[in-house]
Amino acid sequence: MNFSRRHFVKQASCAAAGSSAGLVAIGQTEREDATPLQIGLRAWMNTLLPPDDFSPGAGDLGVHFEIEQHAKSIHNYELLLQRGMKWADDQVKAMGKADFAALDDEDRVKIIEVAEADEAENSVPRQFFFHTLRDGVNFYYGHSESWPGIGFPHPPQPIGFPDYARAPDTAP
């Protein structure tokens, strides 16, 4: 099974143009029929890009659905999501708890830190971490709800930025 970084980057670059535009229409973040994978991924994404006082988390915006959909266009990516989430759940079960989604924020962070620190470049946890973060960031900042905290006011058009010659904090 090929989980190498090069494999995914190559395929993702081919698929990204066609996938990103159509997927952001998914606005539904909670589904009664959500699968265990979707529930786990939502928690995972809300830990990678968490909610704060300024903006919702990635899971709250449905980024996990977008990644799941995106994964359908890339060979082995769906499998990586399944195995990656299973890896995370297995870590949690070893701690005597139910699954990743059931953890509090602090413990979720610890699990992700383990995945990030895995030194085997093509391991499931490392690749799962790398690709969900990479694609999660891409989808997350494609939601205008993620912008208020950083001060990006609106898409470039249709009004542009006529205040461009002034310091941003002095603009009316």
Partner: peptide, 17 residues
């Protein structure tokens, strides 16, 4: 924002935001 996240800031979690 995406370019900043991917090329300037990196990381994840609260520190990223």
């Amino acid at each position: 924002p995406t370019a900043y996240a991917r090329r300037v800031v990196g990381g994840w979690g609260e520190s990223h935001k």
